[in-house]
């Protein structure tokens, strides 16, 4: 464990909590892509199956359980509790365009052709594109509430910190997980455009981030 990975995990946790609290307190999920949240719940469900097969550390177990619980709670709030505020007209990204290539690729590119490894690889590739429906929804509505942008900021920060973590582990431990790194870099690139808008619009106190 290193400070970059720990900060990344904390940033990830903060992002998930920001979103969950926003929905819970505003009793609304307007502007939130339910599809992205379902994809994230799927990412955790397929990646954390090793909870039942290997014990890495208490931290590892606790964080996995927390991520699973919070992501399912978020999906529950969107599609059950506050479903009447769910903006289905704008949450129209075709997730099959993400799932088919990701499934195909995880069968082609993996470390071992075993169910657990293929599911892990699937979760890595899926996480890289899971935010697309949310980013698509923001471009479609042309704006994002500031809290949603903070959620996206911390999500992007988590990915940027993980890249720092991989640089650190490569130099300190000679560790290099090619699938995770390649997919993680692609995922982080998707946030770059958002980061620019976040800094130039949200942090300048505009409150909402409205796209040009």
């Amino acid at each position: 464990m290193n400070i970059f990975r720990l900060a990344g995990d904390v940033s990830h946790l903060v992002a998930i909590i920001i979103l969950l609290l926003k929905i819970w307190r505003s009793k609304s999920c307007a502007g939130i892509s339910g599809k992205s949240q379902v994809l994230f719940a799927l990412v955790f469900s397929t990646r954390y199956l090793d909870l039942f097969t290997v014990f890495v550390s208490v931290y590892n177990v606790v964080m996995k359980v927390v991520f699973l619980a919070l992501s399912y709670a978020t999906v529950y709030l969107i599609y059950m509790r506050f479903r009447n505020s769910y903006d289905s007209e704008n949450d129209t990204f075709r997730v099959e365009f993400l799932l088919v290539p990701v499934i195909g690729l995880s069968f082609l590119e993996n470390y071992a052709f075993t169910p657990l490894e293929i599911l892990w690889t699937f979760s890595i590739f899926l996480e890289a594109v899971a935010i697309m429906p949310q980013l698509f929804m923001i471009t479609k509505t042309g704006e994002a509430e500031s809290i949603t942008t903070h959620y996206l900021f911390f999500l992007g920060l988590y990915r940027a910190l993980y890249i720092a973590n991989w640089v650190w582990r490569y130099h300190m431990e000679g560790f290099f997980d090619q699938i995770a790194v390649v997919s993680g870099v692609v995922q982080t690139i998707f946030y770059c455009d958002f980061f620019y808008l976040y800094v130039t619009r949200v942090l300048r106190g505009k409150g909402k981030m409205s796209l040009p």
Partner: peptide
């Protein structure tokens, strides 16, 4: 590859 021996990152 050693990665297959269990992934320690979240």
């Amino acid at each position: 590859a050693d990665e297959a021996a269990g992934h320690d990152e979240l």
